[in-house]
Nucleic acid binder design. Structure first.
Lengths: 237, 237
DNA sequence: CGTACTCTTGACTCTAATCAAAGTTGGTGG
DNA sequence: CCACCAACTTTGATTAGAGTCAAGAGTACG
């Protein structure tokens, strides 16, 4: 759970004020969306590193520059539910109240751009396009959430797995949707889909035996996109 | 699937332009939150009436004045997932893109205040407090959604039922949390919790036999709030 | 080269779904 | 006012799908 510090050319004396991650200001970081003030910082995190802890004071939010992040909710007895996997361009943590109600962890090594939440709010107050953009982001998340409730509440194990592969095929590498390099392990997939590791494996095996996909650890090749859509109860319009 | 028209003292000639619900403008309707322009209307809906259909052009959104509404997503084979139950003061449908991605139906007879979505957007653009309020609403929904993912993905049937009763106890009648008059039937509860009707019944029976609750059709009395919290894996802070 | 993971497969168990039927309740019309 | 019907709820018996437990196969890394 340690953090790596990106060190561009100058070192900030106030680099250690974040509870979980060491960091350094970085003046000319990539500006994925049409963001933002000064005071933002580039933050790096190793695999499995905690970026936000559940219950953290919600001072910051983050934009993913590279890598993959999972949001996690943990029950007291250890049961775990992953809320979403996030990818470059995704903003998270802005929608908190006083405290973050979920943890965010690096699935792969990540580069993040960190913002003060109050700066986000301030910018939303004075910039209507930005505010509108925030509403769109929120709307998108709400839609995705409803779709996931159908998955978690009503789909069978194999349907969940097929849906998952299609979702990842669209998100991980939008250029080549026929092949996915999954950044997360089977345990994460299971906790995302409300299943166990074993059931995820069996589901993948089943799809492989049918010739719908090829599986080689993290690398999934989608051989029959239609069959996968059907297996995942994809709604055709 | 018919709609009742509230007829105050004057009749609008343009009263029938909504596909699903007949309606009449009403100049002095209750103004639950700090809303809004003219052009809003009071709409009434009977039990089980469809307010928004999945795929509807997203022109309107609604504020609940009285009654209870469910948001529904339907799979092609009929499996159903209820996203949320909404109560007076709740706004829904504002977070759509071009089309509504879910249906909204009246659980009980409802009174709604209808707004043009573009008016909401316009008001958000020029009124920063209103925009902020919208963000807060969205944030609340996102939080609730994550909590529900834990429920749907990781909780057992009895845990879901206990959690549900506590949630409703807090929402239906915040004054008296010891007794809940559930507005929805067992089928709706089942589709909200990702269970079957039978499992919901058995769960309630189990809680009743333990003396945790009393059940009389829609009326639930919570006898042992602590036991119910424990049964629902309520997180204590 | 061995150790520690992660992934996969198999055998068995158990929770919740399915199928079936018997209460309850509320509304309607005689 | 009462009887009947339809819808909803509850309970029981059985089944099926996913979880648990256990062990083996691959891989990555020191």
């Amino acid at each position: 759970m340690l953090a790596t510090v990106q060190t561009p050319n100058r070192q900030s004396p106030s680099a250690s004020w974040h509870p979980a991650i060491g960091m350094t200001p970085h003046p000319d970081a990539p500006s994925m969306p049409e963001l933002m003030d000064a005071q933002e910082m580039i933050v790096r995190g190793d695999r499995d590193e905690e970026i936000i802890a559940q219950g953290d004071l919600a001072r910051y939010c983050y934009l993913i520059v590279s890598g993959c992040v999972r949001t996690v909710k943990l029950m007291e007895d250890g049961r775990r539910q992953i809320g979403e996997f996030l990818f470059p361009g995704d903003l998270f943590g802005w929608e908190a109240l006083a405290e973050h109600d979920f943890a965010a962890e690096a699935v792969t090594p990540v580069t993040l751009r960190r913002y003060l939440r109050r700066n986000i709010e301030a910018r939303a107050d004075r910039d209507r396009d930005f505010a509108r953009r925030l509403r769109e982001i929120a709307a998108g998340r709400l839609r995705a959430g409803r779709e996931r409730m159908v998955l978690l509440g009503r789909k069978t194990a194999s349907e969940r797995i097929a849906s998952f592969l299609l979702e990842m095929a669209g998100r991980v590498n939008p250029n080549n949707r026929a092949s996915v390099e999954l950044p997360m392990g089977r345990a994460d997939i299971a906790d995302y889909l409300g299943l166990t590791i074993e059931t995820v494996c069996r589901g993948l095996t089943q799809l492989r035996r049918r010739g719908t996909i090829k599986v080689e650890r993290a690398n999934i090749v989608i051989c029959d996109r239609c069959a996968l859509g059907a297996a995942g109860c994809e709604v055709v319009h």
